[in-house]
């Protein structure tokens, strides 16, 4: 558990020292969503229909933006090898890095989401499920993405490859996340969608660090 806390505080410290760099993902999240009213027209009804989907799709893309560097820097300067050689479990270290990634990019997106809901004219009954779904679902994005980030360590053109590998795995999260908001707007109970989202996140937290650690080990063979 010391390894977990040490990695977590180290990654958060690095994120803080880098200044606003990690906030770039959040700016991308807001900016990208702003393009939709400009592209499809500012018709309020149309935007209200699209809002939940647009916010979720932008959340997926913004998560990917920062994710391909999750292990890359540590791999390049040899830190990763020392982490793997350390007596503490690499799985816990990976879990700490995922959590740090979520705290730096996922959580700010949840906080920025109300602004986007406002800009995209989301009906008021959609607000609580949107925030709940993002809060429950966004950790899954960081954890699932960590597997792909570990697989592409050392690859040529890592960033583009990352998109191709991760997006298919993100689709269930997207479906249930946007589905919760659509259900609430349509007058249904969103709790079934939220429960499915919670199941995805819990499974991701349990399994993904383990798979990502296996991927990192074979990358360093």
């Amino acid at each position: 558990m010391t390894a977990f806390m040490a990695t977590l505080s180290r990654d958060l410290l690095i994120a803080r020292r880098e200044g606003g760099e990690s906030l770039l993902a959040v700016i991308f999240f807001v900016l990208g969503a702003m393009l939709f009213p400009l592209g499809v027209g500012p018709e309020g009804k149309l935007l209200a229909l699209m809002a939940a989907g647009v916010i979720w799709v932008m959340a997926l893309l913004a998560t990917l933006l920062a994710l391909d560097r999750l292990f890359q820097a540590d791999w390049r300067d040899g830190t990763l090898e020392l982490m793997a050689l350390a007596p503490d479990s690499l799985t816990l270290v990976v879990a700490a890095k995922c959590l740090a990634h979520w705290l730096v990019t996922g959580l700010p997106m949840v906080i920025a989401a109300p602004v986007m809901a406002l800009l995209l004219n989301l009906p008021p009954e959609g607000w609580p499920p949107l925030l709940a779904a993002l809060l429950i679902g966004s950790p899954a994005l960081s954890f699932i993405g960590a597997i792909c980030a570990a697989l592409i360590v050392g690859a040529r053109r890592g960033g583009v490859l990352m998109t191709l590998l991760a997006l298919p795995l993100y689709i269930p999260t997207l479906i249930f996340g946007a589905g919760a908001v659509q259900a609430a707007i349509g007058g249904f109970d969103p709790s079934a969608h939220l429960a499915a989202l919670g199941a995805i996140t819990l499974a991701a937290i349990a399994l993904c660090p383990w798979a990502a650690a296996a991927a990192l080990r074979q990358a360093m063979e």
């Binding site: 592409i152 053109r157 490859l161 191709l164 590998l165």
Partner: peptide, 10 residues
Amino acid sequence: LGYIAIRNAF
């Protein structure tokens, strides 16, 4: 496609 891409990426 992802499988083919990752095979060609290293």
